[in-house]
Design a binder for these strands. Structure first.
Lengths: 137, 137
DNA sequence: TGAAATGTTTACTGAAAAGGTATAGTTTAT
DNA sequence: ATAAACTATACCTTTTCAGTAAACATTTCA
């Protein structure tokens, strides 16, 4: 019931990028040092964020990474799902055929977990990185 | 970001016990068969639930398990914490010294995650097994 | 009183996921 | 043409998950 280390790193990286003037490109190494994230691992995570259209990469000399859209348009939910895939608090809620008992509208445990899951998603979706950035200052 | 299989089994076992007349003792094998939980694994989980004072065991012939308190006094949070330990959405929120950047009041990501964590705990704490049992019928 | 039915304790195992590293590229500014 | 960036793929080590096994302890009741 824990977020990955990778997700934590991802959020810190995005928070860092959100503190720069919009559109500014910055190399991975710098993010790695500022946020104390192992460089190789960071590069791997950044690729997930590119796929999710959260950051953009720029190759070649003076290349690096920048946000793909304004910080105000990036939520914590976006980042979590980019790194971990869709949130599913329980196996059943991900793929009902994995439920070895009774995935059905009549399983109150799974119903309650589903409600909680949606609540979490709403919660994460409410925070964008512009807001979070403002809280840093 | 998922609950264990063990937690899912635990909740189903408790839901099952909650459907019996209060105080009734039932052997693990029956729970195992009804809920399709591997017996050895169930026994292991039941021990965690005993430690958390959620179920009681009765040894010897005609032994088995029963709830240690009324279903209305057992919440989903109790069961989750009994099986998985205290909820911590993020390493930092569990033990700040594991935070390799900045666990502090000034890390807005961790603050936001903490809020979400508390929200989840409230949510899970609101469901007791009497309520859940009523939803089965 | 002793055999059978229950739970208890401790240890083990195989597979998957987490977390991170390595190597050999490709692209681009200068 | 070269160096500074990113990319792709594969690999590795450790931990966690999910489950199993074997030997033991307790209780009932015939």
């Amino acid at each position: 019931m824990r977020l990955n280390q990778a997700t934590d790193y991802a959020m810190r990286a995005i928070l860092y990028l959100s503190g720069l003037p919009y559109g500014q490109v910055i190399e991975a190494k710098l993010i790695s040092e500022e946020e104390r994230i192992p460089i190789r691992f960071l590069l791997k995570i950044l690729r997930l964020l590119i796929q999710a259209n959260i950051v953009q990469s720029h190759r070649g000399v003076n290349g690096g990474y920048s946000l793909a859209k304004p910080a105000s348009a990036i939520t914590m939910l976006d980042v979590v799902e980019a790194v971990e895939g869709p949130i599913a608090i329980n196996r059943c809620l991900h793929s009902p055929e994995e439920c070895n008992k009774f995935f059905s509208k009549h399983c109150p445990v799974h119903e309650a977990l589903f409600e909680m899951q949606e609540c979490m998603k709403e919660h994460l979706g409410r925070y964008n990185f512009q807001m979070l950035r403002e809280r840093v200052k």
